[in-house]
Computed example of a mutant assay.
Amino acid sequence: MIRLFSYFLVLVTWFPAVLAQGPTPTYAEQLGFPAGKKVIIMHVDDVGMSYDSNEGAIQAIRNGVATSLSVMMPCAWVPGFVHYLKQNPDLDAGLHLTMTSEWKDYRWGPLAGKPTVKGLVDTEGALWPSVADVVKNASPDEVETEIRAQLERARTMGFEPTHMDSHMGTLFATPAFLQRYIKVGIEEKIPVMFPGGHNTAIRVDERMSGDMYALTQTVGKQLWAAGLPVLDDLHNVSYGWKLPEDPAPSKEKLQAFKTQKYIDGLASLKPGLTMVIMHCTDPTEVFPIISGSTQTREGDLLAMIDPKLKAYIEKEGIILTTFREVMQRRQRVK
């Protein structure tokens, strides 16, 4: 995971709008949610990356408190998930726009075609393994071309995404990449993941300066003015949580640890619309060969299906929502 706003300050050269203080009321309130409530999109990333990823996401939503997910369209198990989605069209499914292929032995290439987006392709013929590689080698035009190719594949398959976000934060890595991400979202009328409100959690996580914080609000206002919903905040730290010292914790111990971390995270959030990011996986013996993140991802799934987490959410009056719902609400706001 890269820090989403690592390069964000230089965006001031692209957004000339007057910088202002955060919106009052929150975007959640502007969407018609009750004042003072925490409104949460519990979001599962990396669907389509593997069979195990698909199973984890489906279980987290069907048997747990997760509400939304996004799909990595260049990956091998996309058809498997889209076939399931067609039978379950109520799922809130978006695009996890993918410009990187980060694993050593399990990789994927661009959907736009290697000759079309040469700057996105490494010496193995796959997408670059790191965000820094993409920044160094790819042009904004190539990034936009690949965004549109991933959207086109989804639509060709009969999958209309409820939203878009960015795998590994690559589309937040430069002003030009972010501009193309927002441009496509506005033109296609698809909500894009963007925290443009009070940003209480993400300000701490990203160590935002005052200017950077004000700038996120300017971008948020641009998206709102274009008819798209905007997040008040973003919780994006779960992938980095240090697991228990036990090298092979039991499922019960792993579940208890991750559940408490999510409870603590939810408790620390301020009222407003917040997206909480996780990576739920139900691992077979294959997944550890793909990635060293098996425990982290299985722990996320175990937390989502833990009755203790559901009970906490209900006790605290936290409202769970989806990108589909917030877009429907945004369309009703004049």
Rank of each mutant, 00 (worst) to 15 (best):
Arg180Ile: 02
Ile190Gly: 11
Glu206His: 08
Val78Gln: 11
Val143Lys: 03
Asp122Val: 00
Phe159Ala: 04
Pro249Trp: 05
Glu298Lys: 15
Ser139Tyr: 10
Gly158Gln: 09
Val10Glu: 13
Asp133Glu: 14
Val326Glu: 08
Gly158Phe: 11
Phe15Arg: 03
Ala76Thr: 13
Ala176Tyr: 07
Gly125Arg: 03
Pro195Thr: 02
Gln87Val: 06
Gly240Asp: 01
Pro129Tyr: 08
His279Asn: 11
Phe159Pro: 07
Ser50Asp: 07
Lys189Tyr: 10
Gly32Glu: 11
Asp300Val: 03
Gln179Ala: 14
Lys310Met: 14
Gly196Val: 01
Leu11Glu: 14
Thr162Trp: 04
Val65Pro: 00
Gly317Ala: 11
Ala138Glu: 05
Asp233Lys: 04
Gln30Thr: 04
Asp90Arg: 11
Leu234Ile: 03
Ala60Val: 13
Lys86Ile: 06
Val39Gly: 04
Ala60Ser: 15
Thr100Leu: 00
Thr123Ser: 15
Pro229Gly: 09
Arg330Asp: 03
Met212Ser: 15
Ser68Pro: 10
Ser293His: 09
Thr67Leu: 12
Arg3Asn: 14
Pro115Thr: 06
His235Asp: 12
Val78Tyr: 07
Glu325Leu: 12
Asp233Val: 08
Leu95Thr: 01
Leu171Glu: 10
Val184Thr: 05
Ala248Asp: 13
Met275Tyr: 00
Gly22Gln: 07
Thr259Asp: 02
Thr296Gly: 12
Leu273Asn: 06
Gln150Phe: 00
Val333Trp: 04
Asp211His: 14
Tyr7Phe: 13
Asp52Gly: 06
Phe194Ser: 13
Ala60Ile: 08
Lys258Val: 05
Ser50His: 13
Val121Ala: 03
Lys310Leu: 12
Thr156Lys: 14
Gln150Ala: 00
Met42Ala: 14
Met164Gly: 11
His279Thr: 07
Ile58Trp: 03
Val276Pro: 05
Thr162Ser: 15
Val44Cys: 14
Met99Asp: 00
Met327Cys: 07
Ile40Arg: 06
Val143Phe: 04
Thr162Ile: 10
Tyr181Arg: 05
Leu9Pro: 04
Ala126Met: 13
Arg330Phe: 02
Ala20Phe: 05
Asp232Glu: 09
Asn88Leu: 02
Val134Lys: 02
Trp77Glu: 14
Pro283Arg: 01
Ile186Tyr: 01
Asn63Met: 15
Val82Phe: 12
Gly220Met: 05
Glu316Arg: 12
Thr281Asn: 10
Asn199Thr: 12
Val12Gln: 14
Val184Asn: 01
Asp46Ser: 06
His83Glu: 10
